[in-house]
Design a protein around this nucleic acid. Structure first.
Length: 813
RNA sequence: GCGGAUGUGGCGGAACCGGUAGACGCGCCGGCCUUAGGAGCCGGUGGGCGCUUGCCCGUGGGGGUUCGAGUCCCUCCAUCCGCACCA
């Protein structure tokens, strides 16, 4: 017998079968089976897949296999998020077209995914850079534009000086470019936006309809940042204009002793255009987010030499400009209540402004600023009221006077989607002197990305250099027009790919609604937490917009979300500079894909970070080899006719049924893939322990053969090649065509159980007791235990606790 | 500062409803097989004391609820993550 587990030949054999027979393709025609859409987040193809990819697809594939064999029609597609900066930066360095390097990476990804044996429906494969795909990205842009959800506007935007492009707020982390780490500058530019703010409330509300990890929901909630408060008007008599502010504390209005505007506020220079103010404003505008953002920074500002009227006190309060007020939030101006707000307090200290207490603290503590609740003071007829009550009363008063109203404000800002870069989806509009912004008609799509000589960004899109391409005619008047040269944020491409998969080869529309409505929403979405806000928020927004357009029939794209943890090495994040990168290919070549996949799932709970260990890989490889040898040996030493277990159930047969139940629960009811694998290991260990004895009888052989085939069947979702191989060896059948096994509950029932006997809650003895023992019987058995009798002797029995089928606890004094 | 998560052997982790703490794997120790093995097979492995049967301690620290707590409550500590001048 050639007793060597050879993953290479086994894996190649089954991969060939799956490719030739297109085993994992699924039709869009519904059948009696319930559907399940299992999706991992779209990979960005750069070089080769890394260990994180191996993990996410190992998790998703285990689930896809399990659900198929449980009788579901499973959609499990693959594609590539192919536009983007790394490929373009590579092009700048080498002069090679980003399409070349991107498509090279895609080939490598595809080849690796195949070598991992992931069960993908390759007939739906897509790349977001293909005209067949981005044609529809452009089409969606036009739909949003028609609906007023895409607009062009000048605004203070984040500018990355290194990547030479604007960024969305979500792509700025700690004042730095999320991609390259450069300090982000603020620039006043005209850009394209999607009106995601219009969906703020719905994005918030519908978080309650999805089953997502709590921390992701919390992050989205915080990002949307809903605050309830009021808008209040402050009149500036000297120029005869009302300025509105948003406040969450209308109850402190009597304590508003000054008024502050953001440097970007359009009226600042109108109120005061002195050199000092100009200089302050200019400095604030050019300061990076990081410099400006620090909360610890000392407050700065300049008085504007004007006043506004506090609407409740009638008092004239001074106006300032200061960079601690943000133009993007609320109205870009605030009422300052130094007694009850930290920041206003700091500013007041710095500028010697009055601090007026209007809420008392319940413990009589008179330290200011005080931000808690209490009883109103110094607030006219509201004095004596609790501030929570005064909140509503003051808003009602403002409304009656026409000086304000209740209002809700969100931190969420519109999605800035234009980028001054080359390797992205062209925005399908033109600029015409006569007609202004003109969207292209649908039949002119796709607007193909032209080839250019130079990819280097120069503060404007490299596309602007393609003069022949830029010059075009206006679809409205036929006159001269210029094309939009910005491209779209790649997050637009990935905000709808899951819809395209449903109907990937449709060339008349992005999808057929009936088809999409049958597959969507995604039943299980799997990916990393790093997308908790960006991608997931954008995809949710787009889905809602499409629902409003009547293009899809659901509100949320991802019913269940699973966020997998990172794989570290020596406790640290893998990086080239640390030299601790684990290459999946290396391990797949050395041990086989089954070992790599099973190990990465066995290492720990998939949602947690886990540290890669070469010794751990060896351990799992040993287990798979053990299972393979068991299969070979059992196939040789038992008869195929003995496949069905017969005779008195042995411990091993019971163990097989126990493993079936365990794996089914771990895979079906939770994401406990690591404990599912443990259960199969236990089954194989028991088979080794018992096999020599079982070979001795026909009945024993039949049960052994069943146990080995069951182990193969249960390991299949994790190690599909080995599972297929061993299962075929023992049954002659294809494991993926077999229904998922079901355990026989009768076989899990034992005649006796281990009765735990405690005295004062401490374990004192373990006894065998008959399965159906009554409480009295259990207690009697426990009392008969010598060890227990010794401890009960001469002491007063206070109480006896009996848990049927489990334990007896004697409480003595 | 605010919000969230986590803390169990030498290591990764298990224990699902409050009921045998440490499944499974790694590592380590011992044995078998072998010309030899870093191959395979079998056994042991939380700590301490007796070292045979047994006893005591033990799930980050302290306190509480309970017949009984890794699990529930309070409190403190540590680590990680997210947000952070959002009015």
């Amino acid at each position: 017998m050639e007793a060597r587990y050879d993953p290479k030949s086994i894996e190649e054999k089954w991969q060939r079968v799956w490719a030739e027979e297109r085993t994992w393709e699924v039709s869009n025609e519904p059948d009696e089976r319930p559907k399940s859409y299992v999706l991992e987040m779209l990979p960005y193809p750069s070089g080769e897949p890394h260990i994180g990819h191996l993990k996410v697809y190992s998790v998703g594939d285990a689930l896809a296999h399990f659900r198929r064999r449980r009788g579901m029609r499973v959609l499990h597609p693959m594609g590539y998020d192919a536009f983007g900066l790394p490929a373009e930066n590579h092009a700048i360095k080498t002069g090679q077209h980003p399409r070349i390097s991107t498509e090279r990476s895609i080939r490598q990804f595809r080849e690796q995914f195949r070598s991992w044996g992931i069960s993908i429906d390759w007939s739906r494969e897509l790349g977001t850079h293909e005209p067949e795909y981005y044609r529809w990205t452009q089409w969606l842009f036009l739909k949003l534009y028609e609906r007023g959800l895409a607009y062009r506007n000048e605004a203070a935007v984040n500018w990355c000086p290194n990547d030479q492009t604007v960024l969305a707020n979500e792509q700025v982390v700690d004042g730095r470019c999320e991609r390259c780490g450069s300090a982000v500058e603020v620039r006043q530019l005209e850009q394209w936006f999607f009106k995601i703010t219009e969906y703020a409330q719905r994005l918030l509300d519908d978080l309650e309809t999805v089953q997502w990890p709590a921390h992701v929901v919390t992050m989205q909630r915080n990002w949307i940042g809903r605050s309830e408060g009021a808008r209040v008007s402050f009149r500036c008599e000297s120029i005869g204009k009302d300025y509105e502010v948003f406040t969450t504390r209308p109850d402190t209005l009597f304590g508003a002793t000054f008024f502050v505007m953001a440097p970007e506020h359009p009226d600042v220079l109108r109120l005061n255009d002195s050199a000092e103010v100009r200089e302050y404003v200019n400095r604030a505008l050019t300061e990076s987010h990081e410099e400006r953002g620090a909360a610890e920074k000392e407050k700065t500002g300049v008085p504007l030499g004007r006043t506004v009227t506090n609407p409740v006190t009638g008092e004239e309060i001074p106006m300032f400009v200061s960079d601690y007020v943000l133009m993007e939030y609320g109205t870009g101006a605030i009422m300052a209540v130094p007694a009850h707000d930290e920041r206003d307090f700091q500013f007041a200290q710095r500028f010697g402004l009055p601090v007026r207490r209007v809420i008392g603290s319940p413990n009589g503590d008179d330290a200011l600023p005080y931000t808690g609740d209490g009883v109103m003071v110094g607030s006219g007829r509201f004095d004596g009221m609790h501030n929570r009550e005064a909140f509503g009363e003051i808003v009602a008063w403002l409304e009656a006077e026409g000086r304000g109203r209740a209002a809700v404000n969100y931190k969420l800002r519109d999605w800035l989607l234009s980028r001054q870069r080359y390797w992205g989806c062209p925005i399908p509009v033109v600029y015409c002197d006569a007609d202004g912004i003109v969207p292209l008609p649908e039949d002119e799509l796709p607007v193909l990305l032209p080839d250019v000589e130079d990819y280097a960004p120069k503060g404007r899109s490299p596309l602007a250099a393609a003069e022949d391409w830029v010059r075009t005619t206006c679809p409205k008047c036929g006159g001269e027009a210029r094309r939009e040269t910005d491209t779209m944020d790649t997050f637009v491409d990935s905000a709808w790919y899951f819809l395209r998969y449903c109907d990937a080869r449709n060339d008349r529309a992005p999808w057929d609604r009936a088809v999409v409505d049958r597959w969507m929403p995604v039943d299980q979405y799997i990916g990393g937490v790093e997308h908790a806000i960006l991608h997931l928020m954008y995809a949710r927004f787009l889905t809602k917009a499409l629902a409003d357009l009547g293009l899809v029939g659901f509100q949320e794209p991802f019913t269940n979300l699973f966020t997998q943890g990172m794989i570290t090495r020596d406790g640290a994040k893998m990086s080239k500079s640390k030299g601790n990168v684990v290459s999946p290919r290396e391990y797949v070549e050395r041990y086989g894909a089954d070992t790599a996949r099973t190990y990465i799932l066995f290492i720990g709970p998939p949602e947690q970070d886990a540290d890669w260990s070469d010794q751990g890989v060896e351990g799992i490889h040993r287990f798979l080899a053990r299972l393979w040898r068991l299969g070979v040996e059992v196939a040789e030493r038992t008869d195929a006719s003995e496949a069905d277990p017969r005779g008195e159930p042995t411990a091993l047969l019971r163990k097989a049924h126990w493993a079936i139940e365990k794996v089914t629960q771990d895979l079906g009811e939770r994401f406990a893939l690591h404990t599912a694998i443990s259960a199969v290991i236990e089954l194989v260990n028991d088979a080794y322990r018992d096999k020599e004895e079982l070979y001795g009888s026909a009945e024993g052989r039949s049960q052994l053969r069943f146990a080995a085939a069951t182990a193969a069947s249960l390991i299949f979702p994790f190690a599909p090649h080995l599972g297929s191989e061993v299962y075929e060896l023992l049954t002659g059948r294809r494991v993926w065509e077999e229904p998922w096994p079901e355990h026989d509950p009768a076989l899990l029932e034992e005649d006796t159980f281990e009765l735990i006997v405690q005295v004062n809650g401490k374990l004192r003895d373990r006894l065998r007791a008959p399965a159906g023992a009554s409480r009295e019987e259990q207690e009697r058995l426990a009392r008969e235990s010598e060890k227990v009798a010794q401890r009960l002797d001469g002491r007063e029995l206070v109480k006896t606790v009996v848990v049927p089928g489990k334990l007896v606890n004697f409480v003595v004094r």
